[in-house]
Design a protein around this nucleic acid. Sequence first.
DNA 1: ATAAATATGTTGGATATCCAACATATCCAA
DNA 2: TTGGATATGTTGGATATCCAACATATTTAT
Lengths: 185, 185
Amino acid sequence: MSEKRTDPRILRTRKFIMDSFIELSSKKEFKDITVKDITTEAMINRATFYYHFDDIYDLLEKVLSEELLINLDCSIYEKNKLDEVAFTEIFKATTNFQMSLSNRCHRGYEDTIARIIRDQLEVIFFKMLLNHHPSENDEALKLMATMMSWGIYGASVEWRRTNEKIPPEEFIKTVIPYLKNAIKS
Amino acid sequence: MSEKRTDPRILRTRKFIMDSFIELSSKKEFKDITVKDITTEAMINRATFYYHFDDIYDLLEKVLSEELLINLDCSIYEKNKLDEVAFTEIFKATTNFQMSLSNRCHRGYEDTIARIIRDQLEVIFFKMLLNHHPSENDEALKLMATMMSWGIYGASVEWRRTNEKIPPEEFIKTVIPYLKNAIKS
DNA sequence: ATAAATATGTTGGATATCCAACATATCCAA
DNA sequence: TTGGATATGTTGGATATCCAACATATTTAT
């Protein structure tokens, strides 16, 4: 439907910036990365950075969001059904994402990262709940989505605390019946 | 002296184009490479290609020239003296260049490549001869440079024909005394 | 031989990027 | 604390790149 071509310069530059940021993140902590570092690595002008992103936090947010979304199988969105498969996939995506993050060590910024992940999860859950209960009022669904995002994120933290001994799908399996009950009409 | 900053966009795009061309050259013959191929690989617009180069032959010429120059040790230019060291280095650069070329197989365009190499060598020799014999008339020096470029190039072809059994510096060693005699005042 | 398809160059207007300069903000050593 | 250095954002004008459209070649298939 809404077919809007985006200028290839924009895609290119955005990618350069994001890739440079990811590259730098593997070398030093987030707090030591400056906008100048990024633009130098990306071979672009500093002003151009601000053409694409508000600031370095905005960049971080977008990098993390996009990467989390990549982890999420698109098929979930297609059917838009909040069943056990969807729960499992979302949890797996979250743990996957956390594992890839820990390799790249954005040290000193964990809480912000956590917030971004939860925000993303909340958006996903809200969309799906909306699909499940079209007649329910938005406030209730919104709060439900919030709680589910915190819950899933908390579970992934707990999973990581156990040193990833159990596969994510096993780990989350036991509580899925409760989740399913929770969203029953 | 003449310090003129060149726009980083130009350096970047030129490099993308040249690198893409080199990359493509390793995959298919020169005659099968189109401008579209190059610009697609380089992620730039086709019109932008023509902003930097007249056509694909101009690109080839510039890629080869720059690469030949990279092979030539800058120290030769610094002293600008046409002694046995210079002859040896220039010959080594030529053979090096030919070897790297044969790996990338610009098949179907060998004669043009040969011409480009000779042109480059001629320029170098002319500069050096001019330095050696400032009073001599340019026509004579120009012709001398032409003959030396053909000679050196021919020697490198001959060297290649012997399957590179002898190191280039050994190969050229025996004729250097004659070359030195030839340019005596 | 003819037509259709693809490649080559060129152009004018739109837009992304560059640059230098500026005002603030933050950091860190004297 | 103070001052110098460095980082952050912002702006206006200059320039490189994009794009669509065009006219010609060149290639390919029938």
